[in-house]
């Protein structure tokens, strides 16, 4: 895990670079409609892609296992406006339960 340190330090600086940049640029920049839209949409795209990859990535390509029903349960709970932490815990419990009871990957 020592090889993770460069990613952790460079990544922290990279995220901070956006934060500090906002205090150094003129405020009028934030009224550029296209720039704001692009940033919001890129965020949505990244979160959706990360959610997908975390749910189906296997050793080689895609792998369909108990993470999918777990995500389905989380989606229903988010839709019912259940608090974030409860939804995350429920997803973990569903996956763990399916593996324990059904011996399903």
């Amino acid at each position: 895990m020592i090889e993770y340190w460069p990613a952790i330090l460079v990544g922290s600086l990279a995220v901070y670079s956006w934060k500090i940049l906002g205090y150094l640029l003129p405020e009028s920049f934030s009224r550029q409609r296209t720039v704001v839209d692009l940033a919001n949409q890129l965020t949505v795209g990244l979160l959706a892609a990360l959610c997908t990859v975390e749910t189906i990535a296997g050793n080689q390509g895609a792998s369909f296992d108990s993470r999918i029903p777990a995500l389905g349960v989380a989606a229903i709970l988010y839709w019912r406006k259940v608090p974030y932490l409860v939804c995350v815990l429920a997803a973990a419990l569903v996956a763990a339960g399916l593996r324990y009871i059904l011996h399903w990957a």
């Binding site: 990279a14 934060k19 906002g22 919001n40 990244l46």
Partner: peptide, 24 residues
């Protein structure tokens, strides 16, 4: 390491827009 840093960096972009607003 490189895709990890890039994903984190790109997701941080919204903080830059909060900063622009908050700076005012």
């Amino acid at each position: 390491i490189i895709p990890a840093v890039l994903s984190a960096w790109l997701l941080g972009i919204r903080n830059g827009f909060y900063a622009l607003r908050l700076s005012g």
